[in-house]
Design a protein around this nucleic acid. Structure first.
Length: 127
RNA sequence: CGAACAAGCUGGCUUAUCGCUCCGAUUUAGUUCGAAGAGGAAAGUACGGGCAACAUAGCGUACCACACUUCUUAAUUGGAAGAUUGUUGACGGUAACGUCAGGGAUAGAAAGUGCCACAGAAAAAAUACCGCCAUACCCUAGGUAUGGUAAGGGUGAAAUGGUAAGGUAAGAGCUUACCGCUUUGAUGGUGACAUCAAAGGCACGGCAUACCUUGUGGGUUGAAAGGUCAAAUAGGUUUUGUGUUUGAGGGUAACGCGCUCGAGCAAAAUUGGGUAGACCGCUAGAUUUCGAUAUUGAUAUCGAAACCAGAUAAAUGAUAAGCCCUGAUCUUGUAUCAGGAACAGAACCCGGCUUACAAGCUUGUUUUUAAU
RNA sequence: GCGCCGGUAGCUAAAUGGAUUAGCCGGAGCCUUCUAAGCUCUAUUAUGCAGGUUCGAUUCCUGCCAGGCGCA
């Protein structure tokens, strides 16, 4: 399958989750996995790519600079590790990463936790 | 030389790999190439202006903001230069006071209303607690009554012009000189105001950052404004079909069948509204840089050059190496280790004000030590 | 983006410009076999910060700080 779908580190706009209705759908009907510092929301959907939402709540992180920094770290680690989610390309999801800590964690820590989360998502898929 | 404070400026750089957003090409439907991509405060803002929509005869009232002078700006609140007057600090001086610097205040308290606790006789109306003086009486320590007085004491944050001399029974702007105050005039200044002269015997407590009065300004709402396109769903209209579920018509002696119209149901077309969504608004402008001229200055004018973010669950990033910088360690070497930071992230656009800020640089002030 | 509101003891609230109050909480005592409740007495600590007006600010004015609420 790596021939048909080569490892790509791109993260175009198509793979971002936008639109009021879709997001409401995700939050109302999606399943969730919690792993510090993330709350992962996901819902199976009839599309050809995964679409991802990254959220850092204003109540947890006050300053806009820190919020931007965390969002960029999450986005970067997803971009470099999203091939895990494409291993079994029969179902696709809308996924939301919601950051829950009140402090900004380092890049390596975020990446480690995010890889674990993506593997768990694969386990859900195979069930 | 070091330290502290204040003001201003700068606010890491280069290369490689992997990516993000917009624009322009290329091609073909997602690649390839090129170019660009956060700030001095993008933050806060009871401050303005542009722009947009709506409203709008004129006047008044209410509400809100502002209030020395001149200049300046698109701007009533900002800025510059000045005037007057307190306050704080430094220096000089015995002191009064003067000089310098910083920040503040400045329409009206002789239009009205209100407030001024406690203390004090009395707190804005004029009066008299201790006093001072005169007269009368008691009869001489002194007290009582009447009158004069506001100099002194005491209270207070504040006590009815101040100082000196004359004057007086004692006193008092009662009189005089100087100072202060008010009014008038002259001179200087664009002006706030300053200086000088004359007159007035002094009628003036503080608080408008209490209500208020006077003057000036303000229509309301904000890009989530506003405009264009427009799924789905439900609805309106038209057409077609269905049909015994229902109503009406005509027809019949009456009922039924059949016919016509309508309701209902189904399908198609069309229509207004404008939700999800998409696009415009959306970045070339009171723009930026440099130079010249005018001005004490804020600023203005002229000339030349430049194009410099436009995202929308919201791009501007990550990793590695080097330079540079900072800190720590001792082997004092351009050594090893750690780190790249402070405040902080555009959301229609400008201007102002306020606040935050590691490190470095410049200027000024103060100060310690050392040398001369 | 726009418009509002308050900041007072550990907590909840009050206070015309005139020495900051009350309740709960804490401590001690009484009562009780003991505890709770009740009664009595009592301590501690407070006006968010910085300026200004005033003789004197919790109060009036200005600027900040950290919060809360509403509209869409």
């Amino acid at each position: 399958m790596s021939e048909s779908r080569p490892k790509s580190f791109k993260f175009p706009k198509v793979e971002k989750l936008t639109g009021k209705k879709k997001i409401e759908e995700l939050f109302q009907n999606g399943s969730s996995i919690f792993l510090h510092p993330f709350l992962l929301k996901f819902i199976a959907v009839d599309e050809t790519v995964h679409r991802v939402l990254i959220a850092v709540p204003k109540k947890k992180i006050k300053r806009a600079v820190d919020r931007n920094l965390i969002k960029r770290r999450i986005r970067e680690s997803y971009r470099l590790n999203k091939h895990i989610a494409y291993d079994q390309p029969e179902t696709f999801y809308h996924v939301g990463f919601i950051y829950q800590d009140t402090k900004a964690l380092s890049y390596t820590e975020i990446e480690k936790k995010l890889v674990i989360l993506l593997k768990r998502l694969q386990d859900e898929k195979s069930k």
